[in-house]
Nucleic acid binder design. Structure first.
Lengths: 332, 332
DNA sequence: TTGAAAGCGATACCAC
DNA sequence: GTGGTATCGCTTTCAA
């Protein structure tokens, strides 16, 4: 079982030999080292030789010499991916790659695999929400130099982007449409319990502020008929609209309502969250809440480069732009 | 803006000094170097000192010295994540971490961010399907030593796990239930066109082998009413069952059918694919096709360690275990 | 404008 | 059993 690359990789020394200059000179032109004046002639010859020999710098050696890894680790809660965020992160990765950084994404939290910051030596770790003290300690031990959000800064979970704001907007939307008696539909056995709870609390608080009645939170379980039961109960209770935890729940509620003979949204309005592809696809199309992931990704790249390279931050962190996408499941 | 870790990191030399042995000895006990007999006493003292000082080996130095990165890169097509695969990969990562390897996952294909193998120097790159020649060339240039599936081995796209087999099982399931006239529902504007096409072809071929009539493939677009139109057309056409590209499409079809007054599955049966959480949640619960991701993840870890460390392969690659989960959308 | 050389920190080979 | 030490490939300071 021979190695694919049995031949020794080409190093900077090879280029130096080929061109007939010192290895240092090679390094200077390859890194565009500022303050070094290299004649255009030699620069060109070096670049040419590098391309011809297929030179690829050795990451380990460079990391060791410069004392940093040029890796940026993004830690996301399990489910946050999947939607449009995925595509947007690709854009962040592209921007970071141009600056020489690799963006590595890790999903899944405690109990899972050991965090990658322990082994990857990332220069920067960026999280969606604040890290626990244990996590921060572990990062420091691993030599992580920059952590975002900054540990110790009072970043509260419910203030993280996409956690509470969307829930409030769901309620506002229903309120504007005249609904005064609503219920929440959540998901049983989810891995995102804290997120669900926080969103639900935010929704209830907003509803009460607006003088709406909230009949309660009902979990739509992964059990046959549970959504049908829920719909019956709501109907009996005079509920006119449902705030769903996400689009899957919204679709389930909508499906069960239609099966029960209710009209959507006339008899029961439903709004989801996340604006997954599903939301637009479903019949009737589901109103949902969307976050501006493009903007988020742009900001992510900016923050990463700020922390890693000291580049200036041109914008400040604001609540992630969040808005309601109104479709037929609420507006008929 | 001071670094979080202004203090120099503790190295093996520090431990050696602390304990009063040579740095080499420290290395031996830290790596459990076989063939070296270290007295239990010094071994204990070294380990203790390492723990006390919070020693973390420097990845870059180790990588450079040993000539490999201990990184395994898994390349997945965009959408394959999200479902249960995510959790299973966590398990692979844990197994690999025990062996000292970091599992990094990259999703998203061409046109996106530059592939991580260019910058991460992974020891092994594992893909779901075969890589293109360009990709393989780029990996070789980057010094990747092992690629799975092996380039050149005639692994055909439609034979990759989860590509065709599931589609055939959807058809078989409907056939067993007595359906003889079916249609396929796919997704317009999807990023997974090749996957959709391949699955559709497999389904059609199987249906024809079984003597079933396939009315055609109809794309359910992200446009209002498109699914309602589709349902009407199918009903007019005498179609009794739908093979949906995935569970989102299945839910959409089911929702539209119910809204059109059809009974599921009596008037129209629907089967999805992937067995997403949605499938079980929906009302009626959706029959779907599930792949054994746990087994896949276990095998992934095994292959990775085989390629990276030369560990023996205890099982052979077989078509990923795939089966139908029958629920009410087909069985009433 | 270019070259020499000192690290970076761990691995592993060879002596003792 | 334990200790030197050359080595990996690149970065970077200091001379020339």
């Amino acid at each position: 079982m021979p190695d694919l690359a049995a031949a020794r990789r080409v190093t900077a020394v090879d280029i130096a030999k080929e061109v007939g200059v010192s290895r240092a000179t090679v390094g200077f032109v390859l890194n565009n080292t500022p303050g070094k004046k290299i004649s255009d002639a030699t620069r060109a010859r070096v670049l040419d030789a590098a391309a011809r020999l297929g030179y690829q710098p050795n990451r380990a050696a460079a990391d060791l010499a410069r004392g940093r890894s040029k890796i940026i680790l993004l830690v996301l809660p399990g489910r946050l991916l999947g939607s449009s965020l995925q595509a947007s992160l690709d854009e962040s990765a592209r921007v970071l790659a141009e600056a020489g950084y690799a963006l590595v994404t890790q999903t899944g939290g405690p109990g899972g695999a050991p965090p990658l910051w322990e082994t990857l030596n990332p220069d920067v770790v960026i999280g969606w929400t604040t890290f626990t003290d244990d996590e921060v300690a572990s990062m420091r031990l691993a030599g992580v130099r920059r952590i975002v959000p900054r540990p110790g800064e009072s970043a509260r979970y419910d203030q993280a982007p996409g956690v509470s704001e969307g829930a409030r907007m769901q309620v506002d939307h229903l309120h504007e449409l005249g609904h005064r008696r609503i219920a929440l539909a959540s998901l049983a056995d989810s891995q995102m319990l804290e997120l669900q709870r926080t969103r639900a609390e935010a929704a209830v608080r907003r509803a009460e502020d607006l003088g709406m009645e909230v009949v309660g939170v009902r979990a739509v379980a992964h059990a046959d008929g549970s959504s049908a039961d829920a719909v019956r109960a709501w109907a009996a209770d005079g509920v006119t609209a449902i705030v769903a935890y996400n689009d899957d729940v919204a679709a389930t509620v909508a499906g069960a309502a239609i099966a029960a003979g209710l009209r959507i949204p006339a008899d029961l309005a439903v709004i989801g969250h996340d604006d997954s592809p599903m939301a637009e696809l479903f019949y009737p199309p589901l109103s949902s809440v969307r976050m501006d992931t493009v903007e988020a990704a742009r900001y992510l790249a900016e923050v990463a480069l700020h922390e890693a390279d000291g580049r200036p931050l041109t914008s400040t962190w604001t609540e992630l732009d969040t808005y309601v996408v109104a479709r037929k499941s609420t507006t008929g």
